[in-house]
């Protein structure tokens, strides 16, 4: 049988196919996977990929959101709507509950954030539900430590990542063998860039939370970033509140995620803006990465997303 040369699969469809393959491998080889859904753009893409991998059947895993209590209300509203639309089960693991139970201690002061606390809530929830694999939307283009991580990334029974001793990952043959108490994190979007994600959202016409589009908001400037006024932010002397047109490139806590000045009101405009940007999404919007040279590596070692 001879097959005529056919057009190449576009790079987005090639990335999509690779990600679907990864999701099915995990569904087949693990007993209790979970998909971490934050309502952000990357996990929105994960949900679409799960539909492509498993429909017409329901997903072979629940969704889980680690809710810091400091989220943008627009994102929580979107999260619940999307989950209802899909008819899938959502588990909410609450950082507030971890604080109330004395598992973590809330930071104080105007720069306090619940970012670090999430790790404990996440690991507790993984242990409580006995999850052995957790899908995350992290991408290698986001940050230098993430650039080093495997698609299927092993976590020991303390939830720790050991970047100096990762399992070889050959071809597309994933080794999902673990002992009880250990788990893996799985990143189907490892090889996607931020631009790929937006082009895909546009191609698939996926709905995203409204904060990804330009809107008027009360903000103040700190460390070169524009933060939203919210019940979770305290102004420091001299900081002034003003109104401007911003959008968000990443979805994190209101306390540590900056907005960017933007006029992009549609998916096409967002794609154009991202294609032209000269600064990375985390560099532009996340205070949590600026703590030290290896801030992300250190958090990941401790079990962060």
């Amino acid at each position: 049988m001879s097959v005529a040369a056919r057009p190449q699969l576009s790079h987005l469809r090639a990335l999509e196919s690779e990600a679907i393959h990864v999701m099915r491998e995990v569904a087949a080889e693990f007993e209790r996977p979970v998909l971490l859904f934050s309502g952000g753009k990357d996990s929105i893409v994960l949900l679409r990929l799960a539909e492509k991998a498993f429909r017409p059947a329901p997903f072979p895993f629940p969704l889980m959101h680690v809710d810091t209590g400091h989220n943008f209300p627009e994102v929580i509203e979107y999260r619940d709507r999307r989950v209802a639309e899909l008819g899938e089960r959502l588990i909410v693991a609450s950082v507030q509950d971890s604080i109330d139970a004395g598992r973590v201690v809330e930071e104080t002061g105007p720069r306090a954030s619940r970012n670090r606390l999430q790790t404990v809530t996440l690991l507790d929830a993984i242990a409580e539900h006995g999850f052995d694999a957790a899908f995350g939307g992290a991408r290698r283009d986001e940050e230098r430590a993430r650039a080093k991580e495997r698609i299927m990334s092993f976590r020991d029974d303390f939830g720790q990542w050991d970047p100096k001793n990762q399992r070889p990952e050959l071809w597309n043959l994933y080794n999902g063998r673990i002992n009880k108490g250990e788990h893996v994190r799985v990143f189907p979007l490892s090889n996607w860039t931020e631009l790929d994600v937006w082009e895909y959202i546009d191609a698939e016409q996926l709905e995203v939370p409204s904060i990804y589009f330009a809107h008027e908001r009360e903000v103040f400037r700190r460390d070169g970033m524009l933060y939203a006024i919210s019940p979770f932010t305290e102004l420091i002397d001299g900081e002034e509140v003003f109104s401007d047109t911003v959008r968000y490139r990443t979805v994190g806590d209101m306390s540590c995620t900056g907005g960017v000045l933007s006029k992009a009101e549609t998916l096409e405009e967002v794609v154009l803006e991202i294609a032209a940007t000269t600064i990375t999404e985390r560099g532009e919007t996340r205070a949590d990465d600026r703590v030290s040279e290896a801030a992300m590596e250190d958090r990941k070692k401790a079990g962060y997303f």
Binding site: R144, A145, A147, K148, P163, K164, Q166, E293, A294
Partner: peptide, 15 residues
């Protein structure tokens, strides 16, 4: 990008 790589001036794992 890893701390240990920068300390030792070598690459340890694939980036």
């Amino acid at each position: 990008g890893l701390r240990a790589e920068r300390e030792q001036g070598i690459t340890i794992d694939v980036a």
